[in-house]
Design a protein around this nucleic acid. Structure first.
Lengths: 128, 128
DNA sequence: CTGCATCCGTAAAGATACTG
DNA sequence: CAGTATCTTTACGGATGCAG
């Protein structure tokens, strides 16, 4: 595991009170994972792996551990043969829903503008 | 510039409609930069550098370019001696304000829970 | 099945020094 | 002042193999 406290900002909070949250909620792969768990409910490791098709098991494990440690995801181990592990969003994780909704709203409204800005920027760059 | 389309998710959107926005708004250093510009208005490169004290000029340049390309920040170059460059939030960037507010709210309400979850997790880990 | 361990390549971040 | 050039370091992510 290479992420635990490494993702804690050293000082940027000084200039930005929301940096800590960003590190927790928006580090790599966390949104797809949380979204999948939120949309499709409790599910097993392989299901998540299949849903987020480009993630590797190693990284998926890392991120799930991180999310579990942060209390956003609950991991349930069933000592059977073969073993079965299920993941689900925690109560704390569920409190992120309005945040994600706001984000989806902004996306629907303004994402196109970003694309246009990029095109304009790139076009101007080529002209120079 | 080493970031442009490299930060574009290859597929995760498939499993998460908000991934694109996350890549744009919450990549490294972007929130401190946007926050500083939002809080203190238009300012020069050095001012930003001093405010976000741990960022290096190289990375600050990279991120500002990225934000400019995405249309979230406006860069104004004054051809004087010595040169003067000013950065400010764009109109599009300003539309992020409610999003940041929601984030700050969540932080105020739930950040403590995350800390507690971490402590509990680490304590249990040591016990094992 | 679920994961952990390891090695490895790439690429972003960081530190430092230097120009127009 | 506003960056750029260069080098070093670190982390990420892929591939493989193996254990419970």
């Amino acid at each position: 595991m290479t992420i635990p406290e490494a993702c804690v900002s050293p000082d940027p909070e000084q200039a930005c009170p929301i940096s800590p949250v960003v590190d927790i909620v928006f580090s790599r792969w966390t949104t797809p994972i949380l979204w999948a768990l939120h949309e499709f409910g409790r599910q097993r490791f392989v299901e998540l792996e299949r849903r987020i098709s480009t993630i590797t098991p190693k990284v998926l494990t890392q991120r799930l551990r991180q999310l579990e440690r942060d209390g956003l995801v609950v991991r349930t181990y069933h000592p059977e043969v073969p073993p079965r592990v299920e993941y689900e969003i925690s109560e704390l994780g569920r409190t992120l829903a309005p945040l994600f909704a706001t984000l989806a709203d902004w996306s629907a409204t303004h994402l196109r503008s970003v694309d246009q800005a990029r095109e304009a920027y790139d076009a101007a760059g080529r002209a120079r």
